[in-house]
Amino acid sequence: MSELRHKQVGVAGLYDDPSALVRAAVEVRRAGYTRWDCHTPYPVHGLDTAMGIPESPVGGIGLLAGFAGLGTAIGLTGWLSAWHYPIHIGGKPLFSWQAFVPIYFELFVLFAGLTVMGLVFALGRLGRWHSPLHDSGIMPEVTCDRFAIVLEASDPNYSEDAARALLAQTGCRDIRPLIEYEEEDDAFL
């Protein structure tokens, strides 16, 4: 049987109600932590402000992508209908922007939508196979009825005692270490 190595990668504090979490998030932010996160079963109102999360660039980049889609649509419809394969339809001008507005709209939305989706995955670092939180056992709880703050050991301010003290000071009664297990390279042999 392979031996499991493990190391502590942080501390998690679990709360029973969302408003306690929001208040605690303000405290953690004020204490100067930078590598930390909250985990909740549903979006909690006011949590982004409490955590001090800056405005995401997703919207702005999505808008630019939308304009790229609009340009593509104008080029595509114009090139196809008026230049490459001109067909007169109903006596209307070859380049009838009125008829193409739905295409302008659709490609605007398509480009913006796909870009936003890609950015959300990329910036949210989604699609990781593994996170220490999966080993910790808190995931079943924070996807059900509890709210967690996780302070990561990689934070420059981090020390286990200070982190525990900070969480305790915010009224957290359930503080757990976050352990990451690493299997030996030859685990399957």
């Binding site: 109903g90 006596g91 209307k92 009125q98 008829a99 507005v101």
Partner: peptide
Amino acid sequence: AFSQYMLIWYAN
């Protein structure tokens, strides 16, 4: 507004 305009324009 565009729905009204485009349908009228299209049907002509």
